[in-house]
Design a protein around this nucleic acid. Structure first.
Length: 156
DNA sequence: GCCAACGTTGGC
DNA sequence: GCCAACGTTGGC
């Protein structure tokens, strides 16, 4: 059982979009490090922090879980797709994806809020220049964040 | 729209 | 295998 933070642009797939479906195929990852996490480490049942990026309020927007192992990302074979890769072949696909099931929407924990917590200062997504769309989250970070989310209902 | 950070490409 | 040029990400 591992934990991950996965970035999605809400214009493309928001937490609301994800909740409206049984699961969403995490297409479009075109970075080898992120791909390798999916290929080599992700397992069904792994916890996912659903993160909204490239938007007005970037931050954690929900909780999800991995619900498949890795399989080829079909968008790499589609010349009309933004994610088309002419160098990838059906026989030897370069890019893969997993299915992710959204479990619940949470209050938005903004990037700024994440930065205020010393417990989270080692989070990869907070590191300067971090651009990886998929990053591992430690059990301690996962626990801290889910406690923040649980605690919020008492505070308000 | 800007730009820092970082990844990829390709000539040599 | 080096590294300059170029492309992309993503917060601001």
């Amino acid at each position: 059982m591992a934990y991950w933070l996965m970035k999605s642009e809400p214009d493309e797939v928001s937490i609301d979009d994800a909740l409206a479906q049984d699961s969403v195929a995490w297409f479009g990852v075109r970075n080898y490090q992120a791909r390798n996490f999916m290929r080599d480490q992700m397992q069904p049942g792994d916890g996912v922090l659903f993160y909204h990026s490239s938007c007005a309020e970037p931050g954690i927007a929900g909780i999800a879980e991995v619900c498949s192992t890795a399989y080829p990302d079909h968008t790499q074979f589609d010349p009309a797709s933004h994610y088309y890769d002419a160098k990838s072949t059906q026989e030897n696909p370069r890019w893969i994806m997993v299915d992710v099931k959204a479990l619940r929407k949470t209050r938005l924990i903004s990037l700024n809020e994440l930065r205020t917590h010393p417990e989270l200062e080692e989070m990869l997504v907070l590191k300067k220049g971090s651009r990886l769309s998929i990053t591992p989250v430690t059990p301690q970070e996962w626990q801290f964040i889910t406690e923040q989310l649980a605690g919020a209902k008492h505070v308000r």
